[in-house]
């Protein structure tokens, strides 16, 4: 148990249960609200007599509507394809960059590391208009590539920085020994360092996955047709009808849209944290 002296129950309440409870309430309340709205008949929204946070009658109509009357499954598929590809591509680039910055001494190393970080400072609201032009010049408009190639711009910086730190934690001696044994640098990297770095790679991957999954602006402007939309864009454009919001389906989509990422986290949260630990404390 805890090493800090909380032998008394009131202490445990004061320092642990109460603060944790407050955090749970604050952080999960909006999510709980989405859940409530997604399961309740629309008319209940306007009901001022009953407690708005409770569910009195359950309906699955909003979820049914999503699957039957919208292209939700297509949006889900698009989002998955784009997110997985963008994550893999970013990881590939970030592993190489992180390895070079973390394990090699070379001129420009510090400069390039800082430059990647600075790339993070450029706001997407500035980029998306010039990008639209570039996407069109490269003939990528309305294709998965438009997003797969642009998402890494905001995924690579963090992932590279994290992996750079992680590679530094892996003892150099193992690799040196392999080199002495006649392995090439690439072999040593692939067969020795990379397997040891998997927790870090996983952390970076989950991070990338989350950001790519939630992206809105690029997906809005680079995808032109209904069949190519991602979840956030499809939901907003199909479930807000002129000046009326279809609250039930919107919130149902919010819940369903978070499920894949939430599942990934519930499995990998500890790996994510430990990967981050090693990578980040050596940044």
């Amino acid at each position: 148990m805890s090493i800090v002296g909380e032998n008394r129950i009131w202490q445990r309440f004061l320092y642990f249960y109460i603060p944790l409870g407050l955090f749970v309430a604050f952080l999960l309340m909006p999510f709980y609200w989405m859940f409530v709205v997604s399961l309740r008949p629309t008319a209940d929204l306007l009901n001022r007599v009953r407690n708005p946070f409770l569910i009195y009658s359950v309906t699955l109509n909003h979820y049914r509507f999503l699957f039957e009357d919208t292209a939700f499954t297509t949006w889900m598929k698009n989002t998955l394809i784009v997110t997985v590809c963008a994550t893999l591509l970013s990881l590939f680039c970030a592993i190489l960059i992180g390895y070079a910055l973390g394990r090699f001494q070379f001129r420009m190393g510090n400069f390039l590391g800082a430059a990647i970080f600075i790339a993070y400072l450029v706001p997407p609201t500035l980029l998306f208009i010039p990008l639209a032009q570039i996407i069109s010049e490269y003939q990528l408009y309305n294709s998965y590539w438009a997003l797969i190639l642009t998402y890494p711009t905001f995924l690579i910086p963090f992932a590279s920085w994290l992996l750079m730190g992680y590679f530094r934690t892996i003892s150099a001696e193992l690799e040196d020994a392999a080199l002495v044994d006649g392995a090439s640098r690439l072999q040593a990297m692939r067969q020795i360092v990379l397997p040891l770095a998997m927790p870090g790679v996983l952390s970076a991957g989950i991070f990338c996955f989350t950001l790519a999954w939630n992206e809105f602006l690029y997906a809005l402007v680079f995808m032109g047709t209904a069949e190519m939309k991602t979840i956030p864009v499809g939901v907003v454009s199909d479930l807000i009808k002129a000046d009326t919001f279809m609250w039930g389906p919107l919130m149902a989509a919010g819940i369903l849209g978070s499920v894949p990422v939430a599942i990934a986290y519930s499995f990998f949260v500890d790996n994510y944290v430990s990967g981050l630990t090693a990578g980040a404390t050596k940044g």
Binding site: P30, F31, N214, F245, V261, V269
Partner: peptide, 23 residues
């Protein structure tokens, strides 16, 4: 708890901000 309390960061902002629009 660790995974659950990450939810605000996981829900797409485009949709969680709509939940706040309601709240």
């Amino acid at each position: 708890f660790r995974a659950g309390l990450l939810l605000p960061w996981i829900v797409p902002t485009a949709l969680s901000s709509l939940a706040f629009l309601m709240l």
